[in-house]
Simulated scan of single mutants.
Amino acid sequence: MSYKDIVVFLDAGRSTATRLDVAVSLCQRFDARLIGVDVSTPEAFAGEFADVAKGLEPAFEAKIKEGAIKGEYRVAENRTSSWKDFYAHYADLVVATGRDEDSDDLVARGIPDDIVMSAGVPVLVLPPIWGPAAIGESVVIAWNSSRESIRALHDSLPILRHAKRVTIFEFAPFVDHVDSAPGLVQAHLSQHDVSSEIFTWPNASDIAPIDALFSCLERQQADLIVAGAFGHPRLIEALVGSASKDLLHNPSVPVLMSH
């Protein structure tokens, strides 16, 4: 598996330039086509950001030419309830950014939360204020033995194969004296030529799960989290229940999520 079609959302907010740079670099890495989807709201064309909103297409075209990649520009149809899903359903990966209160009214509602649940493909969510920095050199997999976790694991394999370091993190793992779940995951990854190490947090009473995860991220100097997502729009549940909403909206580390 590889990423051959990547969708990146474009808007007049301050994070678009970084998001586009990340998407272009991923396309270069995987020899993929980039689909730029304008998700601007009508408000974006009526105020101080109007010139930026109107210039999204030429900015996108210039960037794909500079990056020497294939690309196409699309404008999302926002008159129907399902428009946000349309282009994501025909891609291998979606690149989005968490909500930014400074530009919240410029971007269509439901991005990225609803997209994570509806896309059917992995969504790489960047922090609103981030980068540019490497993504995927040191990856932490947030594992909880769920269907969503294995889906995210498989969806991230193209990135994991390029990573210099992969860590399997499990919070308060179930004690099994025959086979541990992280050990089975590690063996499975090795069949895909991915070397990994295991980091478990055995005590569920001394720290919140999300804090344990971020302790692992800091220790491993991680630049990407891989996690499954389950629940329904606006009530994202993954990794360790409601803590995944914090994960999706975390301010410091990109996260690749699959449902």
Rank of each mutant, 00 (worst) to 15 (best):
V121M: 04
A133V: 13
P132N: 03
G120Y: 10
D155R: 14
R151G: 03
L126S: 00
S149H: 08
S138C: 11
I135L: 02
W130R: 09
R161W: 04
H154V: 08
L126G: 10
I150P: 01
R147N: 06
S146G: 13
V139F: 06
V123G: 05
R161M: 10
V125W: 02
W130G: 07
P158S: 12
G131A: 12
H154R: 15
A134I: 14
W130L: 00
A152I: 07
I159V: 15
V121A: 12
E137H: 02
H154Y: 11
A133F: 01
D155C: 14
R147H: 11
R161P: 02
R161F: 04
W143N: 09
L153D: 01
W130F: 13
D155V: 09
H154K: 14
S138M: 08
V123L: 08
I159S: 02
V140R: 00
G120V: 13
V140I: 12
G120T: 12
I141Y: 01
R161I: 05
D155E: 15
H154C: 06
G136D: 00
P132V: 05
D155P: 03
D155K: 14
I141H: 04
G120E: 13
P158L: 10
A134H: 09
H154G: 00
L124V: 01
P127L: 05
I150W: 02
L126F: 05
S156W: 10
V140M: 00
I129C: 10
S156D: 03
S145F: 10
V139R: 07
I150Y: 08
A134V: 15
I135H: 05
G131S: 13
P127D: 03
V140Q: 03
P132Y: 01
R161D: 06
H154N: 06
L157E: 04
E137V: 00
I141M: 11
L153T: 02
N144P: 02
N144H: 05
P122R: 11
E137M: 00
I129G: 05
S156F: 02
R147Y: 05
P128M: 13
D155T: 14
V121Y: 03
P158G: 07
L160C: 12
V121S: 11
P128Y: 14
A142M: 13
P158I: 00
L126Q: 11
V139D: 01
P132I: 07
V125Q: 03
I129M: 02
S138L: 02
G131Q: 01
N144Y: 01
P132A: 12
V123H: 00
V121L: 13
P122K: 12
E137K: 11
